[in-house]
Every structure is written in C-alpha cells, then in structure tokens.
Computed example of a mutant assay.
Amino acid sequence: MIFLDAAATTPVRREVLEAMWPYLSGEFGNPSSHHTLGEAAAAALAEARSGVAKVFNCRAGEVTFTSGGTESDNLAVKGIALARQAADPALNRVVISAVEHPAVEESARYLERVHGFAVDIVPVDGEGLVTVDALRSVLKPETALVSIMYANNEIGTVQPIAELAAVAHAVGVPFHTDAVQAAGWCPLDVKALGIDALSISAHKLGAPKGSGALFTKGRLRLEPLIHGGGQERGKRSGTENMAGAVALSTAAVLAAAEQPAQAQRVVQLRDRFIDRVLDTVPDALLTGHRSQRLPSVASFCFPGTSGESVLLELERLGVVCSSGSACAAGSDAPSPVLLALGIAPETAQTAVRFSFTSTISEADLEAAAAAVETAVGRVKRLAAPQVG
C-alpha cells in the first residue's frame, strides 16, 4: 500500500511511542496532585510544554494543551472573540477566510448564532490565496478577531500569514491562524509570523490522535470553553492528557528539527508527481497555488470522472488517498473550498487529494502517478456511452 493521505493523519513515530510509554504505564500520576507521583507528572508536563514553546518561539506559559486541532481552533476563535466582546461590547464581528477548516468556520457561526456576532468572509483568488487588499477591505472598527489558516488542508495553498497579521494589527485586531496542516512543513515561529494565536494537532505530526496545542500571546484575554479545576492556567480545565502532551511535544520538536531538509526534499518529489499527472492525464486540473503550497499536498480535479470512483480504482491499485478533507468524509456535496476558488460544482466533485508523509519515496510517487493515469483512464472508459 502506498499511503498518500497524510493530511488526514500520520503514522505514529517510534520515538514518540517510546517517549509517551512511561505515562501510559508506571508514571500515572495526576500533575495536580501534591505528592511524589503528582510532582513527577507535573515536571514531565512542564518539560512537554517547554518543548512546544521552543518550537513556537514563545513562553511556556503561552502554550495550552488541548484535545486536538478542532478544540484549539474553537478555543481560539470563541475564546478570544468573547473575551474581547466582554471588554468592549461594540466588538461584535469576526473575520475568517472563504477556505477555513470547519473547526474555524463553525466556531464563527456559533458566535453569530448564539452571541450575535457578524461573520465577515474574506474571498480568495483562483489559487486559494487571501490578499492583503482583500483582508483590509473587510476589516471594520467592530472586528474582534481575524482567523485565517496558515495552509489549506484540501488544496495545500500557504497563506502570507505575516503580511495578513500585520494588516490586522494595523487596526488593533488580534490574529489567529489554524496551523494544523502547516505544522511540520512550515516554520511555526509565532514572533516571526507576528500572530497572537496558533493551533496545532498531534496526529498530523506523527503522534497519536487526541492531543493538540494552542499558543495565545501572553496578554491576550481568553474566555475558556471548559470550566472546572482551572488547569492550563485557567484556559482549559480538566486533568491533562499526560501521554498526549509528551507525545505532541516530542513529535513537534522532531518535526521542527527535520523540517528544512525534509521540506526541500519533498517539494522536489511533489513537483515531479504534479508534472507527471498533468502530462499523462488529459484535462487534469491542479487545484491551489502552483508553488506557494505545502510540500506535502498535490490536489487535482479530473473532469469527466467521479472523484469517489477514482479513489476506489486507486485503492484497488494499492494507492490510498482522499477526495478532500477527512472532516467531510461521506458527503457528496462539492467542496466549499473548491467552490470558493471559482471551480464549477460538477468539476469540484471530481477532486482527489494526494498528501505525503515526510518519508515518502520517489519510487512510491512514481508508482502512484502511474496508478493515477490508469485509474482515471479506467473511470472515464466506464463512464463513456457504450456504442451499439
């Protein structure tokens, strides 16, 4: 099997399993307990937090452990907007892009539905990019928060986050970015990016599912979503997932160290794969920006086919990939991300996404490209009207 669905999840790294194992066995203490076992757990949690903070280039106290990217996005969007509205009731608008993950979009819609916020959508161009002018045009004096993802999970387009954050800051608005897909492939230095909040998820980095982290700038007020024991400096109550925090920290540190070399290597393999597919599959349409995209994502529409049929053929040929976001699995509606790019609904329904781990080989991508040619050709032949 050639696994090309790393944007959905990644295999757990052995180093991560070894690091987290003690906290699934003998080191079972609660970090809030004031005895030897609890103190050992608290020390391990502090070390894990420091590891993530080094990757983010922030203070350890600015890192909040969560259950994953979805919770981190919810906490950022709802928590920042509600805290700012509490301080100034006039702040009742949030800005998101037209290609956000549902974790951000639905959080904004919750604010709209329950708390009376207005949601302003920044359009993207045909390659999925948000421009500085587009963002500037939707900002208003009542804007409480801007949330624009670092890199898109379906098409791979990477946004100019530092430039966009500067536009928001020029009018005094904090900026959050969903960096779940960017983690491991793009630098996460929050100072260089000039952002106020950033979300990541463990299972996109080679750690198990069920753990995530949120950076929030020290003085930025945050209304918690979960109340109780006041863990995570009051930002996220509940006994911490010790093994998950250690796993996330270990994976993030390893990925950050490997990122420059691995990104450069995989970009070359990705571009050869894209060229091969475009050369051998008639009418294939690359979606997203040609170069300003994640090293790990190549996404296409194959007009004249069914995306789901192509996926089934590819799996028969030993290639596992997806038709887009794993969070929309089972839906036959065209992707809102592709529609936002101006792609026709009937074409958007032919989408297939190939996403790679950092260890993907040239041989695997060559075999996958050949499988794509075969699979798309077979689906088109089966869909063609039968003569006679």
Results as ranks from 00 to 15, higher is better:
Ile2Asp: 13
Ala7Gly: 15
Thr9Ala: 15
Arg13Ile: 00
Glu15Gln: 13
Glu15Pro: 10
Glu18Tyr: 06
Ala19Met: 00
Ala19Gln: 01
Met20Asp: 10
Pro22Trp: 03
Pro22His: 04
Leu24His: 01
Gly29Tyr: 10
Ser32Ala: 15
His35Ser: 11
Leu37Asp: 13
Gly38Asp: 15
Glu39Trp: 14
Ala40Ser: 13
Ala42Met: 11
Ala43Phe: 07
Ala46His: 09
Ala46Leu: 08
Ala53Cys: 02
Ala53His: 01
Lys54Pro: 12
Val55Met: 10
Phe56Pro: 07
Val63Asn: 06
Thr64Glu: 14
Thr66His: 02
Thr70Gly: 14
Glu71Phe: 14
Asp73Ala: 04
Ala76His: 06
Lys78Leu: 12
Gly79His: 01
Asn92Cys: 10
Pro102Val: 00
Glu106Ala: 05
Leu111Cys: 04
His115Ser: 12
Ala118Tyr: 05
Asp120Lys: 08
Val122Ile: 04
Pro123Gln: 02
Val124Ser: 11
Leu129Val: 05
Thr131Asp: 06
Thr131Met: 01
Asp133Trp: 08
Leu135Pro: 04
Arg136Val: 06
Lys140Glu: 15
Val146Arg: 03
Val146Met: 07
Ser147Tyr: 08
Ser147Thr: 09
Asn152Val: 06
Ile161Asp: 01
Ile161Glu: 01
Glu163Lys: 13
Glu163Met: 03
Gly172Ile: 09
Gly172Asn: 05
Phe175Asn: 06
Ala179Thr: 09
Gln181Met: 11
Ala182Tyr: 11
Ala182Asn: 11
Gly184Met: 02
Trp185Ala: 11
Trp185Asn: 10
Pro187His: 08
Ala192Ile: 01
Ile195Lys: 06
Ala197Ser: 15
Leu198Thr: 00
Ile200Glu: 07
Ser201Thr: 12
Leu205Asp: 05
Ala207His: 04
Gly210Asp: 04
Ala213Tyr: 10
Leu214Gly: 02
Lys217Gly: 08
Lys217Ile: 02
Gly218Cys: 03
Leu220Phe: 04
Arg221Lys: 14
Glu223Met: 08
Glu223Gln: 12
Gly228Lys: 08
Gly228Cys: 09
Gly229Asp: 15
Gly230Pro: 07
Gln231Leu: 12
Ser237Pro: 12
Val246His: 08
Thr250Asn: 13
Ala251Phe: 00
Ala252Pro: 02
Ala255Ile: 11
Gln259Trp: 09
Arg270Cys: 04
Val277Gln: 06
Val277His: 00
Leu278Gln: 11
Val281Leu: 11
Pro282Ser: 12
Pro282Gln: 14
Thr287Lys: 14
Thr287Ile: 15
Gly288Glu: 02
Arg290Glu: 15
Arg290Trp: 14
Ser291Ala: 12
Gln292Val: 09
Pro295Trp: 01
Cys301Pro: 05
Pro303Glu: 03
Thr305Ile: 10
Ser306Gly: 14
Glu308Met: 03
Leu311Asn: 05
Leu312Phe: 09
Leu314Val: 08
Arg316Trp: 15
Cys327Ser: 15
Ala328His: 14
Ser331Asp: 01
Pro334Tyr: 02
Ser335Arg: 01
Pro336Glu: 09
Leu338Gln: 03
Gly342Val: 02
Pro345Phe: 03
Glu346Phe: 00
Thr347Leu: 05
Thr347Pro: 02
Phe354Ala: 05
Ser355Ala: 14
Ala363Arg: 09
Ala363Val: 04
Ala367Ser: 07
Ala375Val: 04
Val376Ser: 05
Gly377Arg: 09
Arg378Phe: 10
Gln386Asp: 12
